[in-house]
Write a protein that binds this DNA or RNA. Structure first.
Lengths: 239, 239
DNA sequence: CGGCCTATTGACGCTACTCAACATGAGTGG
DNA sequence: CCACTCATGTTGAGTAGCGTCAATAGGCCG
């Protein structure tokens, strides 16, 4: 019951990676994947709590999560930071830096994590050679914009219980997309991270997880969440 | 004092449009602009309050605001809607639909507005012919992601006064980018729109505008805002 | 001039924050 | 293996900020 979810993708090539259906390679043909493989660097390991990139750092590479998970956060002027996203295997990071040439958020590993690195240097010519890859990038970015819209919707004045329920469902469905049971989650992020992401206090998150637990909808045990009444949870999240 | 700001760009070509420095054409060379011009359709007029596109509509075109202003909003399952963005001349709309092939938000004119239309149909080959245009799209999207991060930061647990001050400053600087005085704003959106965007109640927005007015930092008169103490306003917004 | 929509202002209540104490688990060293 | 420490999570009490409801005022249109 400890490590319910354990993303694995030992393959070194995009062509054979089992995350290909959600990651960059989606929809690309063999020739394009070959180009992509040539560019992709050896996987990089990141310890829990250490940075993949930080806010203000020059934009050198894109990253794709291979195993583990990562949070992205923006830092306010007074030094405090807010979580703006949780990223699972197959997710691509760094897209927000294309225009400004430096990262406008920081990425921190939530656990032992490995990522694939795509140096920007060769990315431009890659896009030129294979327009499909270019379109794939646009699709990823456009998805991210739509995602942020969803989140903004939630952050604006929705009751706290709804927010927590919505996050659980979001993670659940993303786990499922990656081939894992939708009913069992292992939250790699802390209550503080969740609170920051949802615009709540950590105490409130803790209280509400307890409350939803008491209502018999989920079973909470620290990082482990078991969804026992999916329909009811969806009702809480107004889905 | 009524129509302080009145964006004008009568030219029909991207090459001569006075918004080119903030709009799509930014950074493109003559040949690329010619391609863009060939694609761009006759400007379209939209009455105040009517739709440019709505949520769920098939993705057929991108739009660039020429004159006027537009709000984008997402609709929740229970029918209520939230504003996710305000768009001024030179802003490009519809980028969130690239991936899903349908619009995930709705766009509504806040006043008499004209837009340039770029049909998706020819967009793909355009990107292939001129990779710089493709890169420009990516830059616009990446900017939008970074922008949404900023907004999410604000929506998460910032005091109401800070949110209002931050929005005023955001609009002010965007007006200035377009060659208009930073001190005079004409808000084309209603208090309800502002409230929805900031995750507040309309009454709260009204109260806080009044409060900031009483503090001698701005002069509010319905839609017209005059910023009299910029430094103080920036302090309120913690910038 | 009259009706309508938007904005303002006031009173009240509730949600979620803050501060604080406490519990629990993970990691460490003896 | 156990005791200790520290980080993380839980629980409780009190409170402030903002939302809700309601009434009123002001501008804009026909």
């Amino acid at each position: 019951m400890d490590k319910i979810v354990n993303f694995k993708s030992h393959k070194r090539s995009c062509k054979t990676c089992n995350l290909a259906k959600s990651c960059l390679p989606l929809g690309l043909v063999k020739e394009e994947l070959d180009l992509l493989d040539k560019l992709t660097q050896q996987a990089r390991r990141i310890e829990s709590g250490s940075w993949l990139f930080y806010s203000g750092q020059p934009f050198k590479s894109l990253f794709a999560v291979r195993t583990g998970s990562i949070k992205t956060m923006v830092v306010t002027h007074d030094g405090e930071s807010r979580v703006v996203g949780f990223h699972l295997p197959g997710d691509v990071l760094g897209l927000e830096a294309f225009s400004r040439r430096f990262h406008s958020c920081a990425a921190v590993a939530l656990e032992h994590t490995t990522v694939c690195e795509l140096p920007l240097k060769n990315l431009n010519e890659l896009c030129q050679k294979a327009p499909a890859i270019s379109r794939r990038f646009m699709a990823l970015m456009s998805n991210e914009i739509a995602d942020k819209h969803e989140t903004m919707l939630m952050l604006g004045k929705k009751p706290a219980e709804l927010r927590v329920a919505a996050l659980l469902l979001n993670l659940s469905s993303r786990f499922q997309d990656r081939g894992f049971p939708a009913q069992h989650l292992r939250l790699s992020m802390s209550r503080y991270d969740i609170a920051s992401y949802l615009g709540l206090a950590a105490e409130t998150v803790s209280r509400l997880l307890g409350q939803i637990n008491d209502e018999g909808i989920i079973e909470v045990n620290r990082k482990s969440i078991k969804i026992t009444d999916m329909a009811h949870l969806q009702k809480l999240a107004q889905i």
